[in-house]
Design a protein around this nucleic acid. Structure first.
Length: 506
RNA sequence: GCCGCGUUGGUCAAUCGGUUAAGACGCCUCCCUUUCACGGAGGAAUGACGAGUUCGACUCUCGUACGUGGUACCA
């Protein structure tokens, strides 16, 4: 049997960290078993449809390197992969359930449902359900006689189809992560299967599609655990229980401070992204920053996601996608939720930047520079800059500050780092240095360093006293790699020019 | 309220009945470096609580507490 997993988001907005992790685990599991990973769009709520969200989700998966084998954009033998295009299929099965006595028509209007809820609401039962206690008091094909039901149906009275929950059953199933889960059926409510607009609810759609698409392992967030018994029942009533996928309910990703599910708002509040990529809500024009745009490498992003709720058991923490596929084991997924730690996320990105070949970073950095109007003379020079500064870049955007002075003359100088200790002796040293460097034929870090040191000795000034001013001249600030390496890459002309620049200011 | 699920340092986590309870992030100290980093050495810091089972419990059982999810014609 071929392993088939699916990621089934609803296209309602930006793709959340937790969503990408669900996709990632599904992908890793499928690939580990030479299986297929499917993207299915769960757009059964027409009120929540958001323009562009589908393409955006696919783009995010592509960027992460976990592209689906089948999706609305790839097509495959189980198309369509968009639930809104499978409307008729669900209806057929809903009717089948009515015929077999496991579901029924309900004609209650939203107002009547509201009325029911307020009527039966008590302190000890703040949210009454449409269940065995009230169903016979409502307007449905169970409480009405056959003629009444027929009449309503013939008059095109809006109706939903509800699942008839048995009164006294213990519903058990085995979750791959949590083991045996058990629920009592009398606590469940008669969930709507088919809505009045003819669309299925998630409950019906997920079962029908997982069956039709031959899904073997279903990964989803822990928030689905309470409705799992509904799905188990549906698999059984539809006569498919032998084909039911194995369930795996993933732990939640929690906010760093306090408790609760990590939300978009938490990211805004605490200053980190929650979405994989930039997302602009087309209705409100509200923009949310993504991991990609804030400067994460996709390798680092999936690495950090993998470590949220899963651990290899090894001491290794940095994993390539291939290593993740190899190491991933569902048994090693945690039960408890994990708080998101942005500091650690940045550390992982930093590790990835450090270990990346400059060539691998070239295009990304080049695009970054283009976007920031930093002109580079050549790719080769940029390559050298990247390899010189990458170990001090935690986010890709750090390449701007760490590399810009190689391409643009600093316009501001941290004079405070120089001025307090500045004196004529140092002024003379640098004046002398300019002429010395002008006459230098060989230009390399070691050569400049030798010249610099010899001259310092001649002037009887400690070299340490002179390096900082030199750095400020070349860089503008107190950061960057060895000054002599900077000078080497800059070339003699620019180096000399920059010394003169600061001398003019001081 | 009810139901489900969970609980090892600040955070991520190893351990699958017997360990001085790993490792990582972050934090602190020191070394390297007269920049910022990187790297290296060290440090502080952990089994929610209470019963049981057992020769022996972080590991198994039960209870309590706490947290979290669900309780929609949303997914």
């Amino acid at each position: 049997m071929t392993v088939r997993t699916r990621f089934a988001p609803s296209p309602t907005g930006g793709l959340h960290l937790g969503g990408v992790r669900t996709a990632l685990f599904s992908y890793l599991f499928a690939k580990k078993h030479q299986g297929k990973f499917i993207l299915r769009i769960e757009d059964t709520d027409q009120n929540r449809f958001v323009e562009g969200a589908e393409e955006y989700i696919l783009n995010c998966l592509d960027w992460c390197g976990i592209s689906p084998d089948e999706s609305p954009f790839h097509q495959g033998e189980y198309a369509p992969y968009r639930q809104s295009e499978r409307k008729e299929i669900y209806k057929k099965y809903a009717l089948q359930l009515v015929e077999t006595g496991h579901a029924y028509y309900a004609f209650d209007t939203p107002a009547e449902l509201e009325e029911m809820r307020s009527k039966y609401k008590t302190d000890s039962n703040p949210s009454p359900q449409y269940d065995l206690h009230v169903r016979m008091k409502m307007k449905n094909s169970l409480s009405l006689n056959a003629e009444e039901t027929q009449t309503l149906l013939q008059n095109n009275t809006p109706y939903v189809i509800r699942l008839l929950i048995p009164s006294n059953r213990t519903i058990q199933f085995k979750d791959l992560i949590r083991g045996e889960i058990s629920n009592e059926s009398h606590l469940l409510d008669d969930k709507v299967l088919l809505k009045a607009d003819g669309m299925p609810t998630y409950h019906l759609a997920v079962v029908v599609d997982d069956y039709l698409m031959k899904i073997t392992h279903a990964f989803r967030g822990e928030e689905w655990l309470p409705s799992a018994p509904i799905h188990i029942l549906l698999w059984e009533y539809l006569g498919w229980q032998n084909d039911m996928p194995q369930w795996a309910h993933l732990p939640l990703i929690l906010k760093p401070d306090g408790n609760g599910k990590l939300s978009k708002r938490d990211g805004e509040r605490l200053g980190f992204p929650v979405f994989a990529m930039n997302w602009t809500n087309p209705e409100t024009s509200e923009k949310s920053i993504g991991f990609k745009e804030i400067g994460f490498l996709p390798e680092a992003f999936i690495n950090l996601l993998a470590l949220l709720g899963w651990s290899s058991g090894l001491e290794q923490e940095i994993f390539s996608k291939e290593e993740l596929i190899e190491q991933f084991a569902i048994e090693k997924v945690h039960k408890g939720g994990a708080k998101f730690d942005y500091e650690k996320a940045k550390w992982i990105n930093h590790e990835w930047i450090k270990k990346s070949e400059p060539k691998h970073l070239l295009n990304t950095v080049k695009n970054l520079y283009d976007a920031n109007q930093i002109k580079i003379e050549s790719e080769n020079k940029l390559l050298e800059v990247i390899s010189l500064v990458k170990e001090r870049c935690h986010l890709l955007n750090d390449f701007i500050m760490q590399g810009i002075y190689f391409f643009q003359t600093p316009t501001t100088f941290d004079v405070e780092a120089v001025k307090p200790k500045w004196n004529d002796a140092k002024l003379h040293f640098f004046q002398q240095l300019i002429s010395t460097l002008k006459n230098t034929e060989e230009w390399s870090a070691t050569h400049v360093e030798t010249q610099f040191k010899n001259l310092a000795a001649d002037h009887n000034i400690k070299i340490g006293e002179l390096q900082m001013p030199f750095r400020i001249m070349l860089v503008g600030g107190k950061y960057g790699p060895s000054v002599f390496h900077i000078a080497e890459l800059l070339g003699s002309e620019k180096t000399i020019q920059r010394i003169q620049n600061l001398l003019n200011v001081l």
